[in-house]
Design a protein around this nucleic acid. Structure first.
Lengths: 251, 251
DNA sequence: AACATGGCTGCATGATCATGCATGTTCCTG
DNA sequence: CAGGAACATGCATGATCATGCAGCCATGTT
């Protein structure tokens, strides 16, 4: 782990847990507390966190949000993202959903990839800006702040004009009965509209999503071409899904 | 392996793993760490990655925007941005252009601002994500990579559906004869369409833009409500503009 | 064929940085 | 107020870095 990565890890934890304890992080990373303290001191000097006795607190909600975008490497989402990125083949057209996992997919695309990516997420589009050979098509509309995606009637309308080979769909739950779910009705409608515009829909489902269900159904399970997950092979929910004929792609 | 191939390999690894460690890559490719370091140094200079102690990290979109292009006149843009941010008043609706100066405006908005911002730049929209009370409306279309804004027929069409109080327009040149200019015809058309949708258009023009002219005219000088600049008060070009009745707002 | 040029590479050098430990200080808790 | 935990600081060590230099190779020129 690079020292610079450790700092983003600290900011990430800060955003997630709303606090950081120097001793715990030192033990977790196998470093001396001195190094962690030095990091926290420097981050505080840069205004990125607030130093307190025993650890640190977030500097402000805005900063915490900003840093949360820079996810740290080898975690569950990253594995799923790398596997999903392989589905966007050179020359193809893909629809990329919003959310943190889809953002990780955008960042995991090889820098040399030549393809067309359609997205309703400004964050994803911004991340794709560093890929010189990726054509970006942005779907506009009212931006739903929680997940930073364009939703609503205008966005659905804009989606109706596109066609793609694959749609990489992010959800908050994959459940044997409830199907694929998310937390907002407008978001669900937008995802549903996007699924209709692609030949194949693949679901991005890091391990914690498997077996979970949110309030609004996006699609039934049999409407997708595959579910990409890093959940362990012995997962009961996955066995149910496999029994129903839903292809599981191991990340 | 050619040196150029090695660089693309580094960028791909960076996308896949979210980091690169100089020592590991050197061992893997059978090269000295010096060569890898040289590569990373050059890639960082090109804005394609971020050099850190021990290796490199991916360049974040915002950073790529700033470093790759005008790392110059950052202070100048910042002053203009702060002055322009004051034009987006609480409760109003503003159209915010793309480009680095407009991005600076987005970042200069107070965190407590309650307003509606319409933009065709995914980068600007992403930056506004941290403002909890700013309603974001995204205009979609094909994204023009150089300045990261949606352009083309679909974007112009989407623009026709909105209405705003002010439009903060970014240009590359403000010239007494050529008027307000930019470097791309589609971009110019999009900016023109946006100007029609706002009651007042203000131009973001940091000092180096004054007196410059690019190839495509966006608007004549008398079509705008004001030009926001930090150019010195004794500037000849500004005197010409003032003589023609164009209001100058000092940043 | 002989030579010059320029890019790429590896090595050596001194500088810089990250880290852990020791020391003395400050802070929290009971 | 006492004990212990957390802290800042200085220092030693090893890793990493920038720079300059020399060798190698491909290319183009005489």
């Amino acid at each position: 782990m690079l020292a610079a990565q450790r700092r983003t890890l600290l900011l990430d934890r800060l955003a997630r847990d709303r606090r950081v304890i120097a001793k715990d992080i030192a033990a977790e990373l196998g470093l001396s507390e001195d190094s962690i303290r030095r990091d926290l001191r420097d981050l505080a000097a840069a205004g990125l966190c607030q130093r307190v006795y025993g650890g640190a607190l977030p500097a402000s909600p805005a900063i915490a949000d900003y840093t949360a975008r820079q996810a740290v490497s080898v975690d569950s989402k990253q594995r799923v993202a790398v596997a999903a990125a392989a589905l966007i083949t050179p020359g193809s057209t893909a629809i990329l959903d919003g959310g943190t996992t889809a953002l990780a997919v955008a960042q995991a695309l090889p820098a040399t990839l030549s393809a067309t990516v359609i997205t309703h997420s400004p964050t994803v589009a911004a991340a794709l800006g560093t890929h010189p050979h990726v054509e970006i098509y942005l779907l506009g509309g009212r931006v739903f702040k929680h997940s930073m995606v364009a939703c609503g009637a205008a966005a659905v309308e804009a989606a109706s004009a596109v066609h793609a080979d694959v749609f990489l769909l992010g959800v908050t739950g994959v459940h044997p009965d409830a199907g694929l779910t998310t937390g907002d009705p407008d978001e669900a409608a937008m995802k549903r509209a996007l699924a209709q515009r692609a030949a194949d829909t693949y679901v991005l489902a890091s391990a914690e999503k498997i077996g979970a269900a949110s309030r609004f159904t996006v699609l039934p399970l049999d409407a997708v071409a595959g579910i990409i997950t890093d959940a362990p092979a012995s997962d009961d929910t996955l066995d149910h899904l496999t029994a129903r004929g839903v292809p599981i792609l191991r990340a």
